[in-house]
């Protein structure tokens, strides 16, 4: 059982003045796994996600990405390489699809952008890839020339997913991806995420405050409170046998965990 982790986070710390947004966070993420991070608003979940991607400067600690060739310390990665990594092997899915999509260009261009970023210059091929990924995320490929604002919230979120997945990333960071969706739409997205994770062997860090979402999606779970990880383990361990007072409160406050 010597599987290499895809990502290791060691003692990651980020403060905003007096506030400890992330206090010495450590974990490893393995290929094909979904790691859920739950906690209430202000617990540091989103900051952690941004800190992992080095989208904001961190105070101390280390994030190491183990791709097939050699381990990469994100902090030491030159900015061009890091930005490139974020557009190829990593992906970021925003809670609000309007933040993750270009609303003024068509669905096809939204999906094609990452391909054009990495130098693809064949219109026909880009279009073929865009239709393929539309189908993968269950959007009719006929909608390729439609603008995202004509899509429903669930479709926009799936389009955002396609936009990220088109470069076949290994790691996807998601910030409340099901946040603004109604329950039936949520279910469809959850199911889609689950099957994509399996077929593409994706690793996902999923930030949410919805225990139902992590119960169905996440293999492992970290519970955050006040910038600290107060409990972590297999999702069912943490939810069925919560040890920390905060986790117990969180689980008992959920209607149908």
């Amino acid at each position: 059982m010597t599987i290499q982790p895809l990502l290791t986070v060691e003692q990651l710390t980020k403060t905003y003045g007096e506030i400890q947004a992330c206090d010495r966070i450590s974990f490893s993420l393995y290929p094909g796994q979904i790691l859920g991070i739950i906690g209430e608003s202000g617990s540091g979940k989103t900051t952690l996600l941004n800190a992992i991607a080095h989208r904001l400067p961190i105070d101390s600690g280390q994030v190491t990405y183990h791709n097939s060739i050699k381990p990469t310390h994100l902090a030491q990665l030159p900015e061009p390489d890091r930005r490139r990594l974020m557009r190829t092997e990593w992906g970021f899915v925003q809670q609000n699809p309007r933040d993750g999509l270009r609303m003024n260009v068509t669905a096809g261009a939204n999906i094609g952008e990452r391909l054009m970023d990495i130098g693809q210059r064949h219109y026909g091929n880009i279009r073929t890839a865009a239709s393929k990924w539309l189908a993968q995320v269950e959007i009719p490929p006929e909608r390729i020339d439609a603008f995202p604002h004509t899509f429903s919230g669930g479709m926009q979120q799936r389009l955002q997913l396609a936009r990220v997945l088109v470069t076949q990333p290994k790691l996807v960071l998601m910030d409340e991806p099901t946040g603004g969706l109604d329950v039936s739409v949520q279910a469809r997205l959850l199911d889609l995420l689950r099957s994509l994770v399996r077929t593409l062997n994706l690793s996902v860090i999923l930030v949410t405050h919805d225990i139902g979402v992590v119960r169905l999606l996440a293999h492992r779970l970290m519970v955050m409170q006040g910038g600290q990880v107060v409990e972590q383990g297999l999702t069912d361990q943490v939810l069925d046998d919560p040890q920390h007072p905060y986790t117990q409160q969180l689980v008992s406050a959920t209607l149908l965990p």
Binding site: Q11, S26, F27, S28, Q232, H244
Partner: peptide
């Protein structure tokens, strides 16, 4: 509960 104690490193 220092967070490093429950790390799985």
């Amino acid at each position: 509960i220092p967070s490093q104690q429950i790390s799985d490193q």
